[in-house]
Write a protein that binds this DNA or RNA. Structure first.
Lengths: 298, 298
DNA sequence: TTTTAATATCGAAAAAATCGATACTAAATA
DNA sequence: TATTTAGTATCGATTTTTTCGATATTAAAA
């Protein structure tokens, strides 16, 4: 389909506004002959006269009026695109689709979002909370731009940027677990360890951090979220590992003991960002990382 | 302000739809290199990456998604202009701003509009009822396209096209006026002649058709519309001249006598069209005139 | 490492847009 | 009626832009 050009439409609009080819040409910063030819071309494309050339003024035909109305809408829309781009030309402006896993989002976001909105007021974060695998899938399909994940995790074709490392704490009910107020990795008994359900990276991180492998026959509850897990611990079903960021008074109810690990190399997970290697906005993401690093768990 | 071109926007849309430069180029009927350069140019204009080039697919950045949304709106609007023009490429299609004087409109329109809409179903008449002078002023300013007037009338810079001539009848109350059922021009007495108020061409046509000049001192009622005038006649204030098209049973109530003129050259007015000499749609107007001619008053 | 499948780039050719000058046109004026 | 005037249209030359075809580049897959 052959279409009018934006330039032609702007010529028509200028004529409508000024009622004269000459003045319109001036506004469009072209010669009158150029504008004249442009309008003629437009009239040819549309197969209709658009401009009524009078001695004193150039007015529009009814169809010309209809057309100029659409044309001005089109010009406005086009200019809006440009204006928007101007706004976003500063770094870390505009929409950014950020994926976060459930074992980070509720703890880190309330702390870090206010900082981000203050530091990058033009940033328009679109948050998506999902399990790591789904997030990576979306990232691969370019439906997301940036992920906030827990590592180690295999993320093919992606850049990883580690922000910080956080310790795990063991959580036990008031009268369960060891007598002391601390714990050692080797004291963990796999059969009493409570975990999130499969798919949560926290599950795997906890296990591997403690160098544990679950017996395949194990049949026990798996929780769908950390709050649920904590409730299970409190009820005395067993003990669990919690990342430090989840160890806040709001998250840990009374009746739960938090036990630090006394090992030389205590269990940890790493928190970091992840984006497509091919994404041209690496610089933006690194800037963002700089701010996210200021967050310290607990 | 430098603007993206419609072509560039269509490239972006094609990439969004096909997820690939190559397929998009195919759809746009250009080579991949052309499309690639076009997108690059667009990204330069906007100062931002729009497309995330992946191995398997080309996806859009968040700003690209925003932009493509506007772009597709713009493309639709543009295509709508073209589609509309296609529709109107047949003669006598689309909007036509027609001005009509009050002493024609209510009599001719009910007869002629149904015929027009049947014969030119795509014609979109916009009717404007005003006195001749105002209509001519609007016509001059290209705010109207075509006038349906009564002649003779001086219409500088305009084309006149006479459709037909219609006779005047004298209207008198049942027991007023001459004894016979007809009348002669010279029987009209200026002092008992009722007229429309100043500005109505009918007033001047009636006077000149009867070769009358009003005494400057004359102080009498002037009616603002023909129905009012007829009521005044019925009430016995005097007699008046009515154009034939106004002499229908719906217009003339009982108690009014319509008297034909017996003169060799009875008083008449002419009905015709009028448009700017420079208007390129002369052919359309003449076609229209052909149909309007089929109307016969009364 | 090679192959593959995509996008980017380059130089030449083609197309178009633009300009400046001039022709044309109709109204206003002399 | 001829001339002036004030607008738009047109023309040829030039410049700019677009496009193409070929090739380079890139990164994943084999």
């Amino acid at each position: 389909m052959i279409r009018p050009t934006i330039k032609q439409l702007s010529y028509l609009s200028a004529i409508h506004q000024h009622g004269s080819f000459i003045k319109a040409a001036e506004e469009c910063a072209v010669t009158q002959s150029t504008l004249s030819a442009g309008i003629k071309e437009l009239e040819t494309i549309l197969g209709q006269p658009l401009v009524l050339r009078g001695r004193k003024a150039a007015n529009l035909t009814p169809f010309g009026l209809e057309t100029v109305e659409s044309a001005e809408k089109i010009l406005e829309d086009t200019d809006r695109i440009v204006a928007r781009s101007r706004l976003l030309n500063q770094p870390l402006s505009g929409p950014l689709r950020l994926g976060i896993i459930p074992t980070i989002a509720p703890y880190m976001l309330p702390e870090i979002l206010p900082v981000l909105t203050e530091k990058f007021p033009r940033l328009e974060l679109q948050l998506h909370e999902e399990l790591t695998d789904r997030l990576l899938e979306s990232l691969r399909k370019s439906q997301l731009d940036l992920l906030l994940l827990a590592f180690p995790y295999d993320t093919p074709d992606m850049n990883q940027y580690i922000l910080f490392e956080e310790k795990f704490y063991a959580a036990a009910a008031e009268h369960a677990g060891p007598v002391e107020n601390s714990i050692n990795i080797k004291d963990l008994k796999p059969e009493e360890l409570l975990l999130l359900e499969d798919g949560h990276c926290l599950r795997d991180h906890a296990l591997s951090a403690c160098d544990l492998q679950l017996p395949k026959t194990r049949k026990t509850f798996s929780a769908t979220s950390l709050p649920t897990l904590i409730q299970m611990v409190k009820t005395g079903y067993g003990i669990t590992l919690l990342p430090e960021m989840a160890c806040t008074p709001e998250t840990i109810p009374p009746g739960i003991r938090l036990l630090p690990f006394t090992d030389k190399r205590p269990p940890t997970r790493q928190i970091g960002l992840c984006w497509r290697r091919s994404d041209p906005r690496k610089r933006d993401y690194e800037t963002l990382a700089g701010t996210l690093k200021t967050y310290t768990p607990a």
